[in-house]
């Protein structure tokens, strides 16, 4: 493999029961130009155990993650999926983006389309991470919906634990939860909808380095995903 190749580690979470199609190259350019050199995919349970690993055909345009998860997840609710991509910097001046289509058949919720997180573990300077601390924010509508919110957090680190501080903001109060994630561990952090009668307005996530992080909203009656979004990152 050429030493001139760049690397990018991306991460998402996958749950059984969804169609989950991953675009290996978002917005492909002319055929043949936008090929990855290699793409390895790894699956981890919440305790950081490697469930499966495989090399994907880098010539693929779409990876059927939903089908893979049905085989890998077994009785698990959720799996952390890492995408280790090697690519030519000349071909991708910024980086390849993986996007995904997520839909739960037989439910009436619309499909979601989302950008897969680029995380630490590849080459940090290629994803703009020049400082140690990460600060991410997300805003919520404050009227009540039949929906519950949480953060999905995963550590793509290989050698060290990372502490993440999740702060929920209400009109006149804040609550903070601290979670420590060992390498390849992941967790769902429930965001309380109310505090002393005040609705959740904002969440901040602080960590020493970049985590796989998504804000998710689930329909209260079914648990189906109706929101799956990245947070806004500040100090990159």
């Amino acid at each position: 493999m050429s030493s001139r190749l760049s690397a990018l580690l991306s991460a998402t979470f996958a749950e059984p029961g969804y169609e989950h199609l991953v675009e290996l190259i978002h917005q492909r350019d002319a055929a043949g130009r936008r090929r990855l050199e290699t793409l390895d995919v790894e699956f981890y349970d919440a305790g950081g155990h490697l469930l499966a690993a495989q090399s994907a055909d880098p010539g693929l345009e779409i990876l059927d993650l939903g089908e893979m998860i049905e085989k890998v997840a077994q009785s698990r609710d959720r799996v952390l999926v890492l995408f280790d991509a090697r690519y030519s910097e000349r071909v991708f001046p910024y980086r390849p983006h993986h996007y995904a289509y997520l839909y739960r058949p037989t439910f009436d919720d619309p499909p979601l389309y989302y950008a897969i997180n680029a995380t630490l573990g590849g080459v940090p300077d290629r994803i703009g991470a020049s400082r140690l601390n990460n600060f991410e924010t997300y805003l919520f509508r404050t009227r009540g919906f039949a929906e519950r919110y949480s953060l999905l957090l995963g550590s793509a680190a290989r050698f060290t634990d990372v502490e993440a501080r999740v702060t929920c903001y209400y009109a006149s109060a804040t609550t903070t939860t601290t979670v420590t994630l060992a390498p390849r561990h992941h967790a769902e952090i429930v965001l309380p909808l109310e505090h002393d009668g005040e609705p959740l307005a904002r969440v901040d996530l602080k960590s020493m380095f970049r985590l796989a992080s998504y804000v998710v909203g689930r329909r209260a009656s079914t648990g189906s995903l109706v929101l799956f979004d990245h947070l806004f990152t500040y100090f990159k």
């Binding site: 978002h26 917005q27 983006h97 996007y99 839909y103 009436d108 919720d109 619309p110 499909p111 979601l112 389309y113 989302y114 950008a115 109706v226």
Partner: peptide, 20 residues
């Protein structure tokens, strides 16, 4: 923007997503 929709007439809800 990408707009997610279901064919079912039972749901008016849509999703929206930006792209790069």
């Amino acid at each position: 923007y990408v707009v997610g929709a279901v064919h079912s007439e039972r749901s008016a809800q849509l999703s929206l997503m930006h792209v790069k």
